[in-house]
Simulated assay, not measured.
Amino acid sequence: MATTWRRLTDRLNGKHDPEVLYEGLPDHLSVPVRQWSLKVMGNYVLVGVVCLRLRLPSSILNSRSPEEALANYQDKSNTMVFMEIVDALLAGLAEANPYTSGRYGVATRELRVELDYILTEGGSAYMVNPEGDGLCRRLNETLRESLDAAVQAADKQKQGAGAHLREAFAAAYGINPNPSVAYSQSVKAVEAVANPLFLPKSPEPTLGAVRSTLDQGRTKYEMVVQDRTGAPAGISAVVELLNLLWHGQRDRHAGGPTSQPVSQEAAETAVHAAALLVHWIATGAIRKK
C-alpha cells in the first residue's frame, strides 16, 4: 500500500500533490536497498547467477567477498544497473525453494515485503511486481487492482488469457520495457477468452474476426449493465474498445504506409484496455440475448 505520510513543511503549506517518483537508485535509497541485497545474498546462493545473467565483471566473483562486492557494485555508465541487480535477485528468490529460509532464517516472502516497503517509503518509481519475481514500474493502486481482477477472472477460464496478461504487464511495466511485446500479448489475452466464445468453429480465429463478428451482430448480444431506459445496454462500448485495440497495433505488419513502432504510452493503454475486455468476457458481462 502506498504511503500517505507527508513531510512537515508540505503539511504546513497544504501541499497535496503526489511526490515525484525517483528513477534508478538515488542517494537516499542506496544504503537500505544495498543492505537488503546483502541480506538476500546471505541467505541464497545468488551472486554467481546474477553476475552471469547481467554479464557483470569477473572482479566481483574473484573478490574476497563476492556478496559485498555485488552489493556495492556501481557502473557510472548505467544508472539503472543496481536496480537490474535487485530485479535479478528477486528472480533468483522466486526460483528458490519458497519454504527454505536460508542460514539467517529469513523467508522469501518477508524479503519481498521488506523491499517493497523500502521502495514505497523512498518514493521509488519501481515496486515488486505482482508475481514477486522482479521489479516493475509503480502503478496507481486502482489500476493495479483492476489488472489483478482481470488476471484472476482469466485464470478461472483456463484458456491462457491470464498468462498473456501477465506477460503484457511485465513487458509494459518491467524494468526493461518492451512496448511491442506488451501490445502483442494484450491482443493475445483478449483472443484467448474471446475466440472460444465468439468464434468457436473458426479454424483461424483472430481479434479482428471477433471485432467483425460483434460489430455485425450487435443485435444478438447485450451487456449485463443497464442503459438509461433500464434495459440491458448494447455492446457498442465493447466493439469500440476492440476497434481501439485492434487498429492501434501499428507494428503488426511491416512496410505499410501507417506502420510504426508501438510507443510506451500505447502499450500501457493496450494492457489496460485488454484487462477490461478480458474481465468483461471472462465474467460474462457480455452475453447473448
Rank of each mutant, 00 (worst) to 15 (best):
R11Y: 01
N13P: 00
H16A: 15
V20T: 14
L21M: 08
D27V: 14
L29D: 12
V33E: 06
R34N: 07
Q35M: 15
N43I: 02
Y44T: 01
L52P: 00
L52V: 06
L52Y: 07
I60L: 12
S65V: 13
S65T: 14
S65A: 14
E67R: 14
E68L: 15
N72V: 00
T79H: 07
F82G: 01
M83W: 00
E84Y: 04
A91F: 10
G92Q: 07
L93K: 01
R109Q: 12
E110C: 07
L111A: 05
R112D: 04
Y117K: 11
T120R: 11
V128C: 12
N129H: 04
P130R: 11
G132M: 05
L135E: 09
R137F: 04
R137L: 02
L139G: 03
L143V: 10
S146P: 02
A150T: 03
A150V: 06
V151R: 06
A153C: 14
Q157V: 14
G160H: 13
G160F: 11
A161L: 08
R166K: 15
A168C: 00
A170L: 03
A172S: 09
I175H: 10
I175Q: 04
P177I: 08
P179H: 04
A182C: 10
Y183E: 07
Y183T: 08
Q185C: 13
S186M: 09
V187H: 02
V190A: 06
N195P: 02
P196Y: 10
L197T: 08
P200V: 15
P203L: 10
E204W: 03
P205V: 11
P205Y: 08
T206R: 05
T206D: 01
V210Y: 04
R211N: 09
R211Y: 09
R211H: 09
T213L: 04
L214A: 03
D215N: 06
Q216M: 11
R228I: 10
V238P: 01
V239W: 01
L244K: 14
L245I: 13
L245P: 03
R250D: 06
A254E: 14
G255F: 10
S259W: 02
V262A: 06
A267G: 11
E268N: 12
E268Q: 15
A270H: 07
A270M: 11
V278W: 01
H279Q: 12
A285D: 05
